[in-house]
Nucleic acid binder design. Structure first.
Lengths: 199, 199
DNA sequence: ACTTTCACTTGTCAACCGAATAAAATTCCC
DNA sequence: GGGAATTTTATTCGGTTGACAAGTGAAAGT
């Protein structure tokens, strides 16, 4: 962190991290650049300097979220011996672990998916569709069920079942007394959802 | 609609209806009283007049959403001949139909559930917990599975699987080409989720 | 008929926050 | 030490916020 470029990249990183949290919980309009700067512990002017505009910062935040999603779900070295259904279950478990560690993705997708504006369209076309196509392929391989037209239903049912508990973590805590961040709770949810979709 | 009270109640109704839509899509802070008044086609001053404050209007909006949920899920006259598992499936189908007709509930719950503030606590204690307790009872009756500790997982998995597709309707449209509001699509989702949770 | 009540309208206020920019200060690199 | 990249400080101009006070008109009560 001595060099200037490293310092600069660290600053950008702090801003994007704060932006991810702020945009996902407060929405695009609700999250002000001042708020983001405060959370990042940096100066508000730096946001314009590094990202030119709030919208471009938002895109950088979305990029970061999907980058960590790709990292988390990168295909494992397929052990040919194991049951394809068990592989599918493990994929779902990994998705649950990601949703628990990064509730921001679901929050942001719901926040943006409610409206049909330009940002949502960009988000779908740029990041969500590739992910969805990958999901369809994996579903076809692992389960090989003939209900092809059910793909949208399976996709949204899975995403919702996997993520909701972690997206509304404070609510879940108060309602059930369960802390969704505890590793044991995450694993229980992972196993529950995995067996639900791949009995 | 000649009498003064009828007129007044109609106005209150229009305001609350607009508030439900606005709060669920824009959040509490994002929805301004002016915006709500515009959507309701009434004067902004009337909001203060009828509800005293924005917060009390928000509570009225929440009350209205949960009232329609209770109406939609009121227990059917139990036909003793039918399979309890099929009854459970039908309950889930009715929940799906409600989520399709009223995506506002899920949107608002996610919007508020993300934070742990006073509004969320009031919402959980006043409306969500009674609903959750009812859900647990019905689950115990219909399925009588020994996995009691899985209730929170089942609850959130079900709620997410049921509702997400309709909560992000514009996104779903663009991503999949499917219109979640079409009756056929709703029924397909209802059947998919019902069979998923009660095979 | 006449007064009171009440839903409603209009106008306003005082505060606050919005993103973006410009200029000044600091730091690193050569 | 000169110059460039990064960061800070200060400001601009604008718009929006929830709430309220005073005024209007029509229905309700008597």
């Amino acid at each position: 962190m001595v060099s200037r470029v490293e310092q600069s990249e660290e600053t950008r990183g702090k801003i994007v991290a704060a932006a991810v949290a702020a945009f996902s919980t407060l929405g695009f309009h609700g999250a002000s650049t001042r708020e983001i700067a405060a959370r990042a512990g940096i100066n508000q002017g730096l946001i314009t300097y590094h990202f030119r505009s709030k919208e471009l910062l938002w895109r950088a935040a979305v990029e970061k979220i999907f980058a960590s999603l790709r990292t988390a779900l990168v295909p494992l070295p397929t052990s040919p011996a194991s049951d394809p259904r068990e592989q599918a279950r493990e994929s779902i478990r990994r998705y649950v672990r990601f949703a628990a560690a990064h509730p921001e993705l679901f929050r942001l997708m719901v926040e943006e998916g409610k409206s049909g504006d330009r940002r949502m369209q960009w988000l779908v076309d740029t990041y969500l569709r590739p992910f969805y196509e990958g999901f369809k392929e994996q579903l076809a391989e692992s389960l090989s069920e003939p209900e092809q037209s059910l793909e949208p239903h399976a996709f949204y049912a899975l995403a919702g079942a996997v993520s909701l508990m972690f997206a509304v973590e404070p609510e879940c805590r108060r309602l059930t007394g369960l802390n969704p961040k505890r590793k044991q709770v995450v694993e229980q949810h992972a196993d529950y959802v995995a067996r639900l979709f791949v009995p």
